Amino acid sequence: MDQHLISLARAVKRRRRARHPTLWLFTDERRQPDLLATIAALPRGISGVVFRHDGAPGRPALARQVAALCRSRRITLVIAGDWRLAAALGAGVHLRGGVPPQSRYRGTVNTASAHDRGQMIAARRADASLLFLSPACATRSHQGASALGPVRWAALAHRCRVPVLALGGITGAVGRHFRAGCAGFGAIDALSSC
């Protein structure tokens, strides 16, 4: 785990007196061979998990294991794109591209990802309580996509009425460049090695 990124997330939590987690693990079945060990290594008090694992066999069973682990460690959990699973687990919902689920279910924390201003507006209208603005930097998740960079990222984040977290290629080395208006960080690779 990227200890410098964890330190940055702790600093954001203190500086902003944030009630929400400031360090979020985005799950990825290809890049996290032992998801439960990865979640168990997340720091308490600042962490959240966006459970994706869309193509994983036995996704609901794995999600139940993840939910139990998150509850025991007081880590916030949101389920990407599946409000029914989120409701069954008592978790929040993660809206992809700000698109709301076809349900009125609202978890304790509802997050959204956005890649442009239109998606940010959609997320706000869908009542997202946190927004991940991506790709902040070049990333394997969006190969070939144009990274926002710190200046464009901050300009977009400044226009949002909900806390905005940096996602996409985030490490401790680059996270320090996203302090202006940054309410935290989301990562895959920087948090995946135990």
Rank of each mutant, 00 (worst) to 15 (best):
R71G: 13
R52W: 04
T108P: 14
A40F: 06
L62V: 11
S113A: 15
P43Q: 01
L85K: 12
S192P: 00
G107P: 03
S7W: 00
T38E: 06
G97A: 10
F132E: 08
G144Y: 12
R179N: 08
A154R: 04
D28H: 09
S113M: 13
A112Y: 02
A18D: 12
G92H: 08
C137K: 01
V174D: 00
A154K: 04
R73E: 12
T171G: 06
L69C: 11
G55I: 03
A68C: 15
G168A: 09
G186I: 10
L8N: 10
L191M: 09
A63H: 02
S193Q: 01
H20G: 10
V50I: 15
F178A: 07
A91G: 06
A128D: 11
R73H: 05
S141I: 04
G169C: 05
G92V: 14
I39Y: 11
R14I: 14
L36N: 12
A86Y: 03
A154F: 01
F185L: 08
H53F: 03
S141K: 06
V49L: 01
E29D: 05
S47Y: 00
L62W: 09
L36M: 13
V151N: 00
D116M: 11
R64L: 08
R15G: 04
A41C: 10
R117S: 15
H53W: 05
L69Y: 09
